[in-house]
Amino acid sequence: MKIFSTIIIITVVFALMKYLGESTKKHAAVVSEGTIILKMNQAYGVIGYIGIVCSAVIGVIASLGTVKSVQDLIIVIGLVLSFLALSMPLVLISKKMKIEVDEEKIKHFGITGKIKTIYWNEIKTVKFSKTALELSLITDKIKVKLHMHLIGFNDMVNIMKAKIDYSLYRDALIEIESVNNRINKGF
């Protein structure tokens, strides 16, 4: 039974990562001439809502008399808070975060409502993290991180290629291409 459940979990995670990786290839929404909007894949929100439902189910089951001791109560509260702490950011990322990219600048709208604006001509460093799947665009004062699962990520990379010097993004592009190749080959 353990092997069967492990195989199911690995298959679900693999399929989800493949699906999320494919969102990189989708085109971003175009709002006006030369301006594109990147938003996180909606699967993040779905996973977040599932986590919130799990949290609620744990709370309801606990309130039906299954909690017999203070230790049980602490475990239940810990589980509920853990599910909420992991799920809420996913919902907020899918609902509130967006990035506007145009010929002049990148505007990052965070989950807290904070807006960061970075101009192409001010970018000093470009990095890509394979573990976080984030492209970091860094100026002297501002750092903007763009996750690879943003719908239209490749569109943004193509604009970046046209707007900044190759020497700034060469290493990041190599890393992005290696991740894309791994996704295309099925990990």
Rank of each mutant, 00 (worst) to 15 (best):
Met1Pro: 07
Lys2Glu: 15
Phe4Val: 12
Phe4His: 15
Thr6Leu: 14
Thr6Val: 10
Thr6Lys: 14
Ile9Asp: 13
Ile10Phe: 15
Val12Tyr: 11
Val13Lys: 03
Phe14Ala: 13
Ala15Trp: 08
Gly21Ser: 03
Ser23Ile: 13
Thr24Pro: 07
Lys25Tyr: 14
Lys25Asn: 13
Lys25His: 11
Lys26Gln: 14
Ala28Gly: 02
Ala28His: 00
Val30Cys: 08
Val30Glu: 11
Val30Met: 09
Val31Asp: 08
Val31Tyr: 10
Glu33Arg: 06
Thr35Arg: 09
Ile36Ala: 02
Ile36Asn: 05
Ile36Gly: 05
Lys39Phe: 02
Met40Thr: 09
Met40His: 15
Ala43Glu: 08
Tyr44Asn: 04
Val46Cys: 12
Tyr49Val: 14
Gly51Ser: 00
Gly51Leu: 01
Gly51Gln: 01
Cys54Ala: 11
Ser55His: 01
Ser55Leu: 04
Ser55Phe: 03
Ala56Val: 14
Val57Ser: 08
Ile58Thr: 15
Ile58Tyr: 08
Gly59Val: 04
Gly59Phe: 07
Val60Ser: 04
Ala62Asn: 09
Ala62Glu: 03
Ala62Arg: 06
Ala62Thr: 07
Leu64Tyr: 08
Ser69Ala: 03
Val70Glu: 14
Asp72Trp: 07
Leu73Pro: 06
Ile74Pro: 08
Ile75Trp: 10
Ile75Ser: 07
Val76Thr: 10
Ile77Asp: 02
Gly78Ile: 04
Ser82Leu: 15
Ser82Asn: 13
Leu84Asp: 05
Ala85Arg: 10
Ser87Ala: 12
Pro89Met: 03
Leu90Pro: 03
Leu90His: 06
Leu90Ile: 06
Ser94Asn: 07
Ser94Trp: 05
Met97Lys: 13
Lys98Trp: 08
Ile99Ala: 06
Glu100Val: 01
Val101Lys: 00
Val101Ser: 04
Asp102Gln: 04
Glu103Lys: 13
Glu104Ser: 15
Lys105Met: 06
Ile106Thr: 05
Ile106Cys: 04
Ile106Arg: 00
Lys107Ser: 14
Phe109Thr: 10
Gly110Met: 12
Ile111Ala: 14
Thr112Gln: 06
Thr112His: 07
Ile115Phe: 05
Ile115Leu: 07
Lys116Tyr: 08
Ile118Ser: 09
Asn121Tyr: 12
Glu122His: 05
Ile123Pro: 01
Ile123Asp: 02
Thr125Asn: 12
Ser129Arg: 04
Lys130Trp: 03
Leu133Arg: 12
Glu134Asp: 12
Glu134Leu: 11
Ser136Thr: 02
Leu137Ile: 00
Ile142Glu: 05
Ile142Asn: 01
Lys143Glu: 10
Val144Tyr: 02
Leu146Tyr: 04
His147Gln: 04
His149Pro: 03
Leu150Asp: 08
Leu150Val: 05
Gly152Trp: 00
Phe153Ile: 01
Asn154Gln: 12
Asn154Glu: 12
Met156Gly: 07
Lys161Ala: 02
Ala162Cys: 09
Lys163Val: 00
Ile164Arg: 00
Ile164Ala: 00
Tyr166Trp: 10
Tyr166Arg: 12
Ser167Lys: 08
Tyr169Glu: 07
Arg170Gln: 13
Asp171Val: 07
Asp171Leu: 09
Ala172Lys: 01
Leu173Val: 02
Ile174Pro: 06
Ile174Leu: 13
Ile176Asn: 02
Glu177Val: 12
Glu177Pro: 09
Ser178Thr: 09
Ser178Leu: 06
Val179Tyr: 04
Val179Ile: 14
Val179Gln: 06
Asn180Pro: 03
Arg182Ala: 12
Lys185Phe: 11
